[in-house]
Design a protein around this nucleic acid. Structure first.
Lengths: 337, 337
DNA sequence: ACTTGGCACTCAATACTGACGAGTGCCAGA
DNA sequence: TCTGGCACTCGTCAGTATTGAGTGCCAAGT
């Protein structure tokens, strides 16, 4: 159905359109991509491509622009992997080198990603549900209020105030701390409820309800994903391509919703596999005219996702490449934090 | 120089322009603000106001718009305090009621502020330099790496990885923890260096260099203000007033720089005093066409600032009022966290 | 069967026009 | 000091003509 040359025509259209952001005509393709055929031939090919739904005409007397389906084909079959330049690699390296803690790593990488791709970059903090507890600290705020600080192996530190059902004294807090650390260290928070069940009478009866409360709170951190933090950078990049969005308003609105962002990044598959969602493939209302390039990252298995959001008219090769590179570096650095 | 009526004319111009975002003519003023004079008289007054630099004409056959100076006069002398409506008060109350921890309080209030004012809202987290240490936790990551977790009385929790000069064992970590907590609890981080000086030989000689390293790191958290976090919301509101900015690009760029934001909020004066910076009064490049309404907040003395950023053509009365209200509520809630 | 040049056609973009009207400044008179 | 009147400016808008990029189709060539 689509012979080699038609694919070349599609590639030419995508490439030119990404570069110039203007509809591409048959003449420009015939002249600029040495296909060795005349504009008329290209026109015939374009007619077929349009019939098949890979390209479209904004209006009668204009050139063609790729449709979502066209971009999809381009990404799947035509896009050449274009490795980062040496200076870029060096930039990534040196930029992430100085990072002290997790916050720093995330903050730096999200900025770097935005800069490399000239898109909006999104980096999710390591998911609590995929991290293990390294240490758990309890600080007593008052007789009935505790501050719970959970330190995860991925470097994440989360805190939460807990109102306990009955007054508690320093000794009990200490017991609680010891007990919880014994039971939870090295385990996922998701296993927290199991810990309650497992307690025969290790716990002295009086701290039992308190323990239950605390464990419940810990588990809540997972259930409502409120604690799944994300970092954002490069929103200003949305403005440069004024043609791409009718209005950047809905995009900005969508990007402010953490929940939406998380949905956008999707469930991080294994690190190494880049996920590309183009235009309408995107489930999120208001981001129907954007594409998302995302990937899971982590030391070993994925602990979270990162990616970029931009107009469907984006340099996919570059984005995919940058996203992959950043993910690898972040994954490496994560091991060291 | 400026009699009562001229001030009224200025007020009318500001109010109408804020409402309609279109230049205001003499006729509209004479008719809509029952000053009891004819358009011709208003015109004479406007001529004077223009001479004095309070208003300007975009072009010859257009009405007048306020200048920065005009807004300034309006804010200082003409703006009536317009208390929040009962539903609004209730909204604030119920919205902040459910907040669990500091992150939550900040996140909710920044969104609320953005919603109330329809501007970009900025809330600074309680400044480390103005908080006191509540508790300090040390978790050993490896023989030479410690994770320092500092819990402040304002609810802030900061962590930092510290590479210590020599290997350290669990007992030493414990000693260090006890010692640091004894010495730092209830004190400001700014006093940290003093702690070193104060140590005669309380500390066993071997942990002395480690202690110094740790203290230095603690102090660093203040010096480079990297740790001064801010939350942002409502950037989408920048798009609705397309007339106000030639391009929202520089604004978005400026808002992404934490440093800039902090500079913008300025040194929080005492809570209660709202600070208004109009247009050119703003030191930050790229935000010259915006106004900033900010205020310090805290339980008792100010621990940080919050505010809104918007076009100079903003409803100052409303913004000032909302900012003040949010600051008070946040301050109150802070005491309870 | 595929390619190509030619040609008529469509239609967005651009520029120009004139009418309109909002708004002004000025002045003479109340 | 205020007011009505008046001439003037100039941006906006609607209508119109022009331009040119790009297409689809067809007939001829390979």
């Amino acid at each position: 159905m689509l012979d080699e040359r038609k694919l070349e025509v599609l590639r030419a259209i995508v490439e030119d359109f990404v570069r110039t952001s203007e509809p591409v005509g048959s003449k420009a393709i015939a002249e600029g991509h040495n296909l060795g055929v005349s504009p008329a031939t290209v026109r015939n090919d374009m007619a077929v491509l349009e019939d098949e739904g890979y390209i479209a005409q904004p209006h009668t007397s204009a050139g063609r622009i790729p449709t979502d389906k066209g971009y999809r084909l381009f990404v799947d079959r035509l896009s050449a992997v274009k490795p980062l330049s040496a200076p870029e690699r060096r930039a990534i390296h040196s930029f992430l080198e100085g990072a002290a803690d997790l916050d720093d790593v995330v903050r730096r990488s999200v900025r770097l990603l935005a800069q490399l791709t000239r898109q909006v970059a999104v980096v999710q903090f390591p998911s609590l549900s995929r991290s293990s507890v390294l240490h758990l600290e309890i600080v007593q705020l008052s007789t009935t209020r505790l501050l719970l600080v959970v330190i995860m192996d991925t470097g994440r530190v989360e805190q939460r105030v807990v109102a306990v059902p009955s007054a508690i004294d320093a000794g009990q807090v200490s017991d609680l701390r010891t007990l919880l650390n014994e039971r939870l260290s090295g385990r996922k928070l998701a296993e927290a409820p199991g810990v309650i069940a497992e307690l025969p009478d290790v716990a002295r009866q009086e701290i039992r309800p308190i323990l239950t409360t605390v464990i419940t709170v810990l588990f809540e951190m997972l259930v409502d994903k409120r604690e799944e933090r994300v970092a954002l950078a490069g929103t200003a990049n949305l403005t440069q391509q004024s043609i791409d969005f009718p209005s950047i308003r809905p995009v900005l609105e969508a990007l402010e919703e953490n929940v939406v962002l998380l949905k956008l990044l999707g469930d991080a598959s294994d690190p190494g596999t880049v996920l590309v969602r183009i235009g309408e493939e995107n489930a999120v209302e208001g981001l129907r005219s954007t594409s998302v390039v995302s990937i899971g990252y982590g030391p070993g298995p994925a602990v979270a996702s990162l990616g970029v959001v931009g107009p469907t008219r984006m340099d996919y090769a570059n984005s995919i490449c940058a996203v992959r590179a950043i993910a690898r570096y972040v994954g490496e650095h994560l091991g060291g934090v």
